[in-house]
Amino acid sequence: MPVLLMHLRDVPEDELEEVRALLEAEGVDFYETRPSMWGVSGGGIWLPDDADEAEEARARALLERYQAERSRRMRELRAAGHRESPWREHPLRSLAALLGLLIMLGLVTVPFLLLGR
């Protein structure tokens, strides 16, 4: 019976490419099913019928290490993004944008407030 290694629902394309490359580089025999057109099936990466338990354990260990490393990288990128936030780099521009949004919101709501009188 085939073994599902990874669901592909909501998996970014770059992560999928990295997982494919990892499994191919490590010589893991796998196949992929694509998500269905109507979203019933999310697709997945599978080990074939003839994969033994040792191969499954090795593939799962590879994926666990990859996902831990990817998680660490994404946390670092997110932290770097917070430090390099455009709000912090250009506070006056950010304040001007916020003020512009408030003015537009006020202009849109004034007619409704006047109609209620």
Rank of each mutant, 00 (worst) to 15 (best):
W46L: 06
W46A: 00
W46I: 04
W46Q: 02
L47Y: 04
L47A: 02
L47V: 01
P48T: 01
P48W: 01
P48N: 03
P48M: 01
P48E: 01
D49F: 01
D49A: 02
D50V: 00
A51G: 02
A51T: 01
D52C: 02
D52Q: 03
E53S: 08
E53T: 06
E53C: 00
A54Q: 09
A54N: 11
E55K: 02
E55F: 01
E55L: 03
A57N: 07
A57Y: 07
R58M: 09
R58F: 10
R58E: 07
R58P: 02
R58I: 04
R58S: 02
A59Y: 03
A59W: 04
A59V: 01
R60H: 14
R60S: 08
A61R: 15
A61N: 10
A61V: 02
A61G: 12
L62I: 03
L62Y: 04
L62M: 07
L62V: 02
L62N: 05
E64R: 08
E64I: 14
E64V: 09
R65S: 06
R65N: 07
Y66S: 14
Q67Y: 12
Q67A: 13
Q67P: 12
Q67L: 15
A68K: 13
A68S: 14
A68E: 14
A68F: 15
E69V: 07
R70K: 12
R70Q: 13
R70M: 09
R70P: 12
S71F: 07
S71D: 15
S71K: 10
R72V: 11
R72K: 15
R73D: 07
R73K: 11
M74D: 15
M74L: 10
R75Y: 07
R75A: 14
R75P: 03
R75W: 09
E76R: 15
E76C: 09
E76M: 08
L77I: 00
L77D: 08
L77G: 11
L77Q: 14
L77T: 04
R78L: 10
A79D: 15
A79K: 12
G81K: 05
G81Y: 03
G81S: 08
H82E: 14
H82V: 11
H82K: 12
R83F: 05
R83Y: 07
E84I: 00
E84V: 00
E84G: 10
E84D: 15
S85Y: 06
S85F: 03
S85C: 08
S85Q: 10
S85W: 10
P86G: 05
P86N: 06
P86F: 06
